[in-house]
């Protein structure tokens, strides 16, 4: 009888220790996210450069001379866009027996609208917001601009009859 109770005590202790390690393992493992300033990436358009552009004055030519070939062209170059990817943080996940880590990437787009006289009218930066990607947000913005001004007026030219 005494032997049985001792055995039960040993089993109970092992069970308690096992549960302790299991809970410790679960609580100690997990995911760590370290946000950092946006960095890395190629073809990044800095906010400073864009802020140097003057709405209604800076021409498409001046923008292209400064930023080079755009990634997207829409509506006969009424809209042009530049995209790039940057790291905005790092994640790490680990637990019993292993783990992994990596960079958190953010896809960004700068979209610019030009007026009929080829001058910068509007610009906007886009990045992932909740479940909507930057490209989707940009297309929505372009549609909005087109609804506000569906077609640009024809340029005034002297036509000889």
């Amino acid at each position: 009888m005494i032997l049985v109770s001792k055995k039960n005590t040993i089993i109970n202790n092992k069970l308690i220790i096992g549960i302790f390690f299991l809970l410790a393992g679960i609580s100690l493992s997990g995911c760590v996210i370290i946000p950092t300033p946006a960095h890395g990436g190629k073809g990044v358009v800095s906010a400073e450069v864009v802020q140097s552009f003057i709405l209604g004055k800076t021409t498409r030519a001046e923008v292209l001379l400064q930023l080079g070939s755009p990634n997207y062209r829409f509506d006969q170059d009424r809209f042009i866009a530049y995209d790039w990817t940057q790291i905005v943080g790092y994640w790490g996940a680990g637990g019993q027996g292993g783990g992994d880590a990596g960079g958190i990437k953010d896809y960004r787009i700068l979209c610019m609208e030009f007026s009929q006289d080829n001058r910068l009218k509007k610009y906007k930066f886009f990045s992932q917001r909740w479940f909507k990607g930057a490209a989707e947000l940009m297309y929505e913005w372009i549609q909005e601009q087109k609804q506000n001004e569906p077609t640009l007026p024809e340029p005034i030219t002297n036509k000889s009859t």
């Binding site: 300033p37 960095h39 890395g40 990044v44 530049y82």
Partner: peptide, 12 residues
């Protein structure tokens, strides 16, 4: 650390 991570960026 911030100087190192921001130094890798290739701006247009």
């Amino acid at each position: 650390f911030f100087l190192i991570v921001t130094g890798c960026t290739q701006y247009v």
